[in-house]
């Protein structure tokens, strides 16, 4: 599984990244969490408010920070 955190490097993006890491750890699943900071890549997903969370190429959330529990529900 691949989880991407879209955002141009604001503090919220960092929080979302950390939460996603924790969620993956708790779930025990095999997943890679990466940050995506380049505008063209972010735009390719059609996301207009950052941070956003993408799981296997599908936008699950944009414009807010999700809690660890919320992200667990998306995996």
């Amino acid at each position: 599984m691949k989880i991407e955190i879209l955002g141009t490097g604001c503090s919220k993006c960092k929080t979302l990244y950390d939460n996603a890491k924790k969620a993956v750890e708790e779930s025990g699943k095999e997943a890679e969490v990466v940050k995506v900071e380049e505008i063209p890549k972010i735009m390719a997903y059609g996301v207009m408010s950052t941070p956003a969370l993408v799981v296997d190429g599908k936008v699950k959330l944009s414009g807010k920070v999700a809690s660890v529990a919320e992200i667990l529900g998306m995996l």
Binding site: T8, C10, K12, I39, I42, M43, G46, V47, M48, S49, T50, G63
Partner: peptide, 15 residues
Amino acid sequence: TPFCSCSAVPLFIGF
């Protein structure tokens, strides 16, 4: 519409 200057760039391009 919620707006934060940190997402002004994706918002502008999207528009």
